[in-house]
């Protein structure tokens, strides 16, 4: 049902947890769909220097959260905004059709954080 990459990231996510004094925090999800995501960012010179996530969600939501963190880390905010749900799905070895919305949720959380940058 799930790709090896999804299972790997679900079993051993590298980016879960909180950041101390994050510069930006982004949220996405709702109780109705069962997923609640928070993404924490550290920013230096408009670049994402550190990133972590906390996700209450299914296997795909956790794997996609970990993937969005990996893809965003080290990128400029502008470049990070370009990360699409398709990118995440592809990197995860394709999410099941019913779970594509998980990839959309994690990009929403990232965008929600970056939007708050002043």
């Amino acid at each position: 049902m799930y790709s090896e990459e999804i299972m790997k990231r679900f079993t051993n996510p590298k980016f879960f947890g909180k950041l101390d004094n994050p510069d930006l925090i982004g949220n996405a999800g709702n109780p109705q769909c069962g997923d609640l995501l928070t993404i924490y960012l550290k920013i230096s010179r408009k670049k994402i220097t550190d990133i972590k996530f906390e996700t209450l969600g299914c296997v795909s939501a956790i794997a996609a959260s970990d993937m969005v963190c990996e893809l965003a880390k080290g990128k400029t905010l502008k470049k990070a905004l370009e990360i699409s749900s398709t990118d995440i799905s592809k990197q995860l070895g394709n999410l099941p059709v019913l779970k594509v919305h998980c990839a959309q949720l994690v990009t929403q959380a990232l965008k929600d954080a970056i939007r708050k940058y002043k």
């Binding site: 679900f10 079993t11 069962g34 997923d35 209450l56 969600g57 299914c58 296997v59 939501a61």
Partner: peptide, 14 residues
């Protein structure tokens, strides 16, 4: 509290 059922089922399966 604080977890999602499918993630729990898959974790237990593992």
């Amino acid at each position: 509290d604080g977890i999602e059922g499918e993630a729990l089922v898959i974790s237990l399966d593992q």
